[in-house]
């Protein structure tokens, strides 16, 4: 069972930076929403060769995975409270 990105929207992050809110829909119809911070999102777009968040819709969940893994070791920016 794999998840598909069904929505990607620019939203305001808690720390005053923009974020992308991504909705994933699973094969069972269940959905979950994750939020990518600016660095992670930009890296995801670069990795996928995408120039617009609209193009994320329809992509498999794994589109954002390479960027997240890359960021995990280098400059991943988690949320600040």
């Amino acid at each position: 069972m794999s998840a598909i990105i069904t929505r990607a929207t620019v939203v305001g992050g808690h720390d005053g930076r923009a974020e992308i809110e991504v909705e994933l829909t699973y094969a069972n119809g269940g959905t979950s929403t994750i939020s990518l911070d600016e660095d992670a999102c930009l890296a995801s777009l670069d990795t996928a060769g995408i120039n617009s968040i609209d193009d994320l819709v329809g992509q498999p969940w794994s589109t954002v995975l390479p960027a997240l893994e890359l960021l995990g070791d280098t400059h991943a920016r988690s949320r600040h409270s």
């Binding site: 620019v10 305001g12 808690h14 005053g16 923009a18 617009s52």
Partner: peptide, 23 residues
Amino acid sequence: RPIDISFTLEQRSLMLLTMPAWW
């Protein structure tokens, strides 16, 4: 309070992502 976002045209910002020429 609602959330406000700061950005500049100098750096890539998600705020510019819906404007391809600016991006």
